[in-house]
């Protein structure tokens, strides 16, 4: 106890680490859902990486989750590619949510070629976002997509069935959509932070 050092000066000199969480970085890729942005460590979609979205069934609101992002990209004139969707995208519905359909390319391919096409699109560097529905994607295929997204600096979105939740995934972000009691998103994994323990409710409606 020889010399007394003022705490303020130590803090000033950055000699003491304060166990306070770093302020949440404001993401460059907001999801369009403020509640979800706040819950994710990157403040939005992880940039240039793969996001895996797990669904209990088709048509539960997976597009609602993405359409604000797609609208933002296409309005900025960036291309969005939809690779082998399970149904036909319905232009009036997409346009009603602000998506510019002339920047959306729809690729029809059989399941074997769909992964190849998605990887090509991601790697090209000219697409802002790529949506894919890989039916029999294994860990290797998803890792390839992750690397391609990193190479081409694009957002990759992969939609899979909920039963794949138990398997490990190389995706930077894994979201699970739940419909009970209402539409909500459970963050299964997120790179760069702890996944929030509670599901994030989405105030989505059908209109």
């Amino acid at each position: 106890m020889g010399n007394v050092v003022a705490l303020a000066s130590m803090l000033e000199g950055r000699q003491v680490w304060r166990g306070r969480a770093a302020p949440a970085p404001s993401g460059n890729q907001p999801t369009g859902w403020p509640v979800l942005d706040a819950a994710l460590p990157s403040g939005g979609w992880p940039e240039a990486s793969l996001t895996e979205i797990l669904l209990p069934a088709d048509g539960v609101g997976e597009l609602q989750l993405l359409l604000p992002t797609l609208a933002r990209c296409t309005r900025a004139g960036r291309a969005v590619v939809v690779v082998a969707p399970p149904y036909m995208p319905y232009a009036p519905g997409w346009e009603a949510r602000g998506v510019v359909m002339s920047h959306v390319d729809i690729v029809s391919a059989d399941p074997r070629d769909a992964l190849w096409a998605a990887e090509q699109c991601l790697r090209s560097g000219s697409c802002a976002a790529v949506l894919a529905w890989p039916a029999q994607a294994d860990d290797r295929a998803l890792r390839r997509l992750q690397v391609a997204a990193d190479t081409g600096k694009a957002l990759a979105f992969v939609f899979r069935d909920r039963r794949h939740a138990a398997h490990a995934s190389p995706a930077a972000l894994r979201l699970e959509l739940e419909t009970q009691p209402s539409l909500q998103v459970r963050v299964r994994k997120c790179r760069g932070g702890n996944a929030p323990s509670r599901p994030v409710p989405l105030s989505a409606s059908w209109s």
Binding site: G59, L63, Y90, P92, G93, R97
Partner: peptide, 10 residues
Amino acid sequence: TLPRPTWLLD
């Protein structure tokens, strides 16, 4: 128009 869906079945 009234709201339209985002997926359409063939």
